[in-house]
Write a protein that binds this DNA or RNA. Structure first.
Length: 217
DNA sequence: TGCCAGGCCGGGT
DNA sequence: ACCCGGCATGGC
């Protein structure tokens, strides 16, 4: 068994299923992916609650909402001016894609490569946000890499300092079957591991559940 | 209190 | 091609 498969089972046994991103709608998950950029999820929750309360968590409502009003609603998520514009940028592209039916299902029915390219072309959508949208909102089998993933791989000597996003992504996707549920849980478990044992500037790993199973532990 | 959180962009070397 | 400042709130 590949070490990254073994690590998954250890993490799952230790932390249990994470059931990540139980958003009410695809749009809610998509919006959350932008709002959570470098931001605690607790703050994102407040912002999404505001959007629900204001009744603007729909494609049509968000599309006509002025950026400055949107910014005020998402203030708790931080970088609110930036993120309001990024959401508008994304909504513009989505609006062109789903104009006929006003449903995100049409957008996500395209092939994975085309979708990723379109998302990355949006100003403010980078690789992690794009892949989070694809995996969690679109149910596409693509692995999400974030800072926790990098710290995990780096600490176990599986990548070097210079490794790129795509390189780390390929490491997981080459070792694992292309299953949405698996990628979903694995990414969530790595975040869970990072928050629990390996925060930034916190090198302690003595309580890591991977003790003995991978180098460095 | 300062540091951190589920990044990304743009300008400078 | 890298490096770095900026963006900003809330929690511990």
């Amino acid at each position: 068994m590949h070490r990254l498969q073994a690590a998954y089972h250890n993490l799952f046994d230790y932390f249990g299923p994470q059931h990540w991103w139980p958003g009410d709608t695809t749009l809610e998950i998509l919006v959350g992916a932008v709002l959570t950029q470098n931001t605690n999820w607790a703050n994102v929750s407040k912002a999404i609650a505001n959007l629900k309360q204001e009744g603007v968590l729909s494609l049509e409502a968000l599309s006509v909402l002025p950026a400055d009003q949107l910014a005020e609603m998402i203030r708790p998520s931080g970088y609110f001016n930036l993120k309001a514009q990024r959401l508008k940028n994304l909504l513009t592209v989505l609006g062109e894609e789903v104009a006929a039916t006003d449903s995100l299902a049409d957008f996500f029915s395209q092939d994975l490569f085309s979708l990723r390219e379109k998302l990355l072309s949006v100003k403010g959508i980078g690789p992690e946000t794009a892949d989070s949208i694809l995996l969690y909102a679109g149910q596409k089998p693509i692995f999400v890499v974030d800072t926790y993933t990098y710290r995990f791989l780096s600490r176990h000597g599986l990548v070097g300092e210079e490794s790129s996003y795509e390189e780390m992504q390929e490491l997981f996707m080459a070792a694992l079957p292309a299953e949405v549920g698996l990628y979903n849980e694995y990414h969530a478990l790595l975040v869970c591991l990072g928050k629990e044992f390996c925060k930034k500037n916190d090198p302690r790993c003595e309580a890591c559940p991977l003790q003995g199973d991978l180098p460095g532990h």
